[in-house]
Amino acid sequence: MSTATTLPIQLKGATVQRKGKVIVGPIDLSVEGRGITMVIGPNGAGKTSILRMLHGLDALSEGSLHWQGGAKRVRKKQGYVFQTPVLLRRNVLENLVYPLKLRGMARVKATKHAMDALAHVGLNTFAQHAARTLSGGERQKLALARALIMEPELLLLDEPCASLDGNATKAIEAILISARKTGTRILMTTHDMGQARRLADDVLFIVKGKIHEAGTAETFFAAPETPEARAFLNGDILP
C-alpha cells in the first residue's frame, strides 16, 4: 500500500437526486482523523446513500465532494461492504483472491494472503465452498474480509452485522476494533444501538436525508440535543 491518503473527504452541500427527488442532502461533512463514526437514523433516512456518495458510487446532483489526492485513488484506498452483500459466483476463497488479482498480485501469493484473511473471519473451512451456498451471516463475514484484504484507509460498512448472531457480531466487532487500532478510519451504519454505543467514537444522526445531529458518541448518547434524537434513542417514533 502506498502511503498517499485520500483523507480528508470533504462534502459541501452534497446532494443526490433520484428520479427528480432529493434522497440525500444537502450535506456538509468532513471525514478525517481516526476512529469509528456510526451513521444512525431511521429506515430510509439516507444512511446508505451517504456511504455510497463517499465511495463515489453515485453522482452528485449538486454540491461538491472532494477526496484528498483526487477521485482516481479513492476506490483503491476504500473498502466497502454493501447492505446486501454482493458475492462473486465463485468459491469462497476466489472471492478473496479476486481483488488481489485485480491489483496484479501473483496467484500463489494472493491465495496465501486470502487464506489468512479467511482464517481471520473464521471462514477457513469454507474456502472451497461455492459462495452462494453460504448463510447470510457467513456472507457478511466474507464481504467484510474482502473489504479488509486491501488494507483500506477508510472502511465503509453498511450494516455489517445485520443478520449476525451475538457471537458473530462480537467477532466482527473485535475485527473492527483491531482495524481501528491499526489506524483504519471506519464509517458504518447500524440499527443496533448497543453496537453503536460499544463501537462509536463519533455519531452522525441522519433524518430525512440530512445530518440532523453530529458529535462525539459520548455526548450524543448521554445528552442528545434534539427531540428527534432523544425519541430515536428511546425507540419511539420520531416527532
Binding site: 465511495h55 458510487l57 476506490r75 483503491k76 476504500q78 466497502y80 454493501f82 454482493v86 462473486l88 459466483r89 465463485r90 479476486y98 481483488p99 485485480l102
Partner: peptide, 24 residues
C-alpha cells in the same frame, strides 16, 4: 446488475469488468 456496484467498488478496469462477466 448483480456485479456493477461490487466491481466498481473494487476498482476493476473496464476490461477487468468484461473479463469477470465473461468468466462468471
Amino acid at each position: 446488475r448483480e456485479y456493477a456496484d461490487l466491481l466498481s467498488s473494487l476498482d476493476a478496469s473496464l476490461w477487468q469488468k468484461i473479463g469477470t462477466l465473461l468468466r462468471d
